[in-house]
């Protein structure tokens, strides 16, 4: 089913539990990276862990939503996929879906995710604490946070 070319996948707006964007939630299904590259009219795409996010780079201007799937939370390839898209200038919605848990939220934010549709809804208070916990960071990433070395040296 999910592998059939052109099949519409993805999460719906009411499954998006956290969103850090002012625009409207993108409300159309995503397609696989292969389908997306073949279809000139698709505007939403879903990246699986084994997909190469760089295949999307020639098409960034027509993408409104990228879902990055975490089938298991321990597979960290989606973090690289997210940063690669942001580094290439992608400004649309970047939605983490799948096994998205409290303790991965902060790192996902840092890698450029701005929407979260966890398979299992998260405890609101725990999630808010997790998003707010890290006031400083040691590295430059995709969230625009100034690393500690930058604060030290201006």
């Amino acid at each position: 089913m999910a592998d059939t070319p052109g099949t519409v996948l993805g999460t719906s707006p009411d499954e998006v539990q956290f969103r850090f964007r002012d625009d409207d939630v993108v409300d159309h299904g995503t397609v696989t990276v292969d389908s997306f590259v073949d279809q000139s009219n698709a505007t939403a795409v879903r990246i699986e862990p084994g997909d190469d996010a760089r295949e999307l780079l020639p098409h960034l201007d027509r993408i409104a939503l990228v879902e990055v799937n975490f089938p298991v939370f321990g597979d960290g390839r989606g973090y690289s996929a997210a940063r690669i898209l942001r580094e290439a200038g992608y400004e649309g919605e970047l939605r983490a879906v799948g096994e998205v848990l409290i303790d991965q939220l902060a790192y996902m934010r840092r890698c450029g995710f701005d929407a979260f549709a966890p398979d299992t809804p998260l405890d609101m208070a725990d999630a808010e604490a997790a998003f707010a916990r890290w006031g400083n960071v040691y590295q430059h990433a995709a969230d625009g946070a100034e690393p500690i070395w930058q604060l030290r040296h201006g």
Binding site: G76, Y79, A106, Y107, M108, Y138, Q139, A141
Partner: peptide, 13 residues
């Protein structure tokens, strides 16, 4: 050490 501490991309290698 500082670069690798809490690295957001490389914590689920």
């Amino acid at each position: 050490r500082q670069w690798s501490s809490f690295h957001p991309e490389f914590s689920y290698l």
